[in-house]
Design a protein around this nucleic acid. Sequence first.
DNA 1: CCTACGTTCTCTAGCGACTAGAGGAGCAAG
DNA 2: CTTGCTCCTCTAGTCGCTAGAGAACGTAGG
Lengths: 145, 145
Amino acid sequence: MPIDVPGDVPIGEAARVSGVKVPTIRYYEEIGLLPEPPRSDGNRRLYGPAHLARLAFIRHSRQLGFEIEAIRTLLDLQDNPGQPCSPADSIARRRLDEVEARIASLIALKAELERMIDGCAHGSVAECRVIDVLSDHGKCAHADH
Amino acid sequence: MPIDVPGDVPIGEAARVSGVKVPTIRYYEEIGLLPEPPRSDGNRRLYGPAHLARLAFIRHSRQLGFEIEAIRTLLDLQDNPGQPCSPADSIARRRLDEVEARIASLIALKAELERMIDGCAHGSVAECRVIDVLSDHGKCAHADH
DNA sequence: CCTACGTTCTCTAGCGACTAGAGGAGCAAG
DNA sequence: CTTGCTCCTCTAGTCGCTAGAGAACGTAGG
């Protein structure tokens, strides 16, 4: 008995299994991230396992915040597995740096927002700490912003 | 002796003191966030202290990550100081929630990226942990992504 | 066979928040 | 009076999608 390998599926099904929306799949094809799949007699796209795997790769990469161009490079690497993986490595490392920087700045932001909100007496706008702090950056505990 | 209150300054100077780029200032005017300033004889924009204060408010709000529409509301509130400040409060609170959610998801992301990078043996793509994890979400320590 | 409905097709335009560049005019210093 | 900077308006581009129009296909029921 043959295992239930997914045969060729139409775009809606590809969207369902990959979690990528239909127009987004078409968009990925348009920008050359996903190769053009074969078409049915009625001109519908039919995705096989290889396409679905690639789509999953793209989706996962996007979830990790990699940019399209970075993903393009990563996919190229995946297609040529003999090459050294240092480019992949450095792309991931760069992304990690970004994420760390972003976390740090968001934590500072969070502190600033909390200070604003906690200081607010919930009266009129005239005494509102939120508006007050926004108008005068000097009232910030100078987060890096 | 008069204090050195900034007189009317051209857009370049406004950009310098506010830290908002020239085209961005014009953009804020275009979308009605910053009122149209008076013009010089030669049709140049001239910003007075009120404009500069508003610009600083906008810039600070953007740095804290508020959306343009939220800033529009905040500016309206600032213009009508008699109103209750609860709308400002809730805008800030919503932003805080977003920031907290974002921090949490970025921390999970960071862990995932670190795992990928640490696991990479720096050999060829064929054994690259980075590419490997990207192709198979199952290899993630299932962060919420 | 006809109809109804869901899916897919292509195409264009829009989102947010800018950013870049063209082509021209004003303005201050040498 | 020329040089070089700033400023003007305008259009178009960025990123990663998202929305919608209008038409064709495909399938299930009657």
